[in-house]
Every structure is written in C-alpha cells, then in structure tokens.
Amino acid sequence: MRALTRNTLLLLTLLFSGSLLAMDLSQAMTALPAAKAAGQVGEQVDGYLGVVRPGTEAESITRLINQARRAEYQRLATENRINLGDVEAMAGKKAIERTPAGQYIRLNGGWTRK
C-alpha cells in the first residue's frame, strides 16, 4: 500500500509540475520575436505560423498563437460574411509583407529567409 501511495504521489507531482511548465498565450506572444529571430518560427501564406526549426518552445508558440489567430480570423470572417480562407489569405499576405529581412517565410512549400 505504501508503494502505491508513493507512486501515486510521484505521478501527481509529475502531472502537476508539467502543467506549471505549460506555456500560455501571453508567454507565447512574448517569446515569438525571439523565436522568429532565432529562425525557429516563421510566417506562412495561409496566415499562420509554422515551425522552421524545432526548438525548445517553437511548437508551443506556434500552436498557441495559431489557435488565437484562427479564432480571430473566424470572428472576422463571420462578422464580414466572407470565407475563412479569404481572411487567412489576407492575413498571410500582410504577415509576409511585414516580416523583417532575415526572418523566415514559407513560400511555395519551402522555408526561405526574407
């Protein structure tokens, strides 16, 4: 019984500590500029971020920010009675135009430095 309790406590500790390490949207937004500058994350023509080079937080950053972008794109599409794909394409065009030289963009299926 004691081993079960010890194992249960260990499992709960691991689960709880993992949730403390999870990144939230605010942290992802704060980490995004450094991830882009490091070449880990880039902009895509579909309006979403992509992982250029996996890094410590690249996947979490892209996942969280893309979820927020999709929600905003959907809101705009609904509000303006246009297709989600059109909003995504417009956002992607703007994001690529605003990407500074030296950072990555995805064009024609491949990553390139702008």
Rank of each mutant, 00 (worst) to 15 (best):
T13F: 11
T78E: 14
T62L: 02
N83M: 15
G39P: 00
W111S: 06
N7M: 08
R53Q: 11
M90H: 12
E88I: 09
I61D: 04
T56G: 09
R98I: 01
T99A: 06
L21P: 00
K93E: 14
G42K: 09
N7I: 06
R6S: 09
N7P: 00
Q103L: 13
A91I: 13
T13Q: 11
T5G: 14
A91M: 15
M29D: 02
A77N: 15
L64R: 04
Q40Y: 05
T78M: 07
E72S: 11
R2E: 14
G102K: 11
R6E: 13
E88M: 08
L25Y: 03
G42I: 05
G18N: 01
P100Q: 11
E59A: 09
T78W: 06
T8I: 12
A77I: 12
E97G: 07
G109E: 10
L84V: 12
A37T: 09
T62V: 14
V45T: 11
I105T: 10
M90G: 06
R113F: 03
G102N: 07
A34K: 12
T62F: 01
L14P: 00
A22P: 00
G42P: 03
V41H: 01
A28Y: 01
K94S: 14
L32V: 04
R113H: 06
Q44T: 10
A71V: 05
L84S: 12
Q44R: 15
P100T: 05
K93H: 10
Q67A: 04
P54T: 06
L14M: 08
G39A: 09
T30M: 03
L12F: 14
R106I: 05
L10S: 11
R63N: 02
Y104D: 05
S60T: 00
T5K: 15
E59L: 05
S19W: 08
R53W: 01
R98Y: 01
L12Y: 11
M23R: 00
T99I: 05
A101P: 06
L32S: 06
A31T: 02
P54Q: 13
I96H: 10
L76W: 14
L84T: 12
K114N: 09
L76V: 15
K36H: 03
Q40H: 11
R75F: 11
G42V: 05
R113P: 00
I82A: 10
Y48G: 02
I65P: 02
G85R: 14
N108T: 04
E59I: 02
G42H: 09
A71M: 04
A28W: 03
E43M: 13
R113K: 13
R2H: 15
R70W: 02
L15P: 00
A34L: 04
G110V: 09
G42D: 03
R53E: 08
E43D: 13
K36Y: 03
L20I: 02
A91F: 11
R63Q: 04
G47S: 12
E43V: 07
G47C: 08
L64T: 00
Y73P: 08
L11I: 02
A34Q: 07
A89V: 08
A71C: 00
A34I: 01
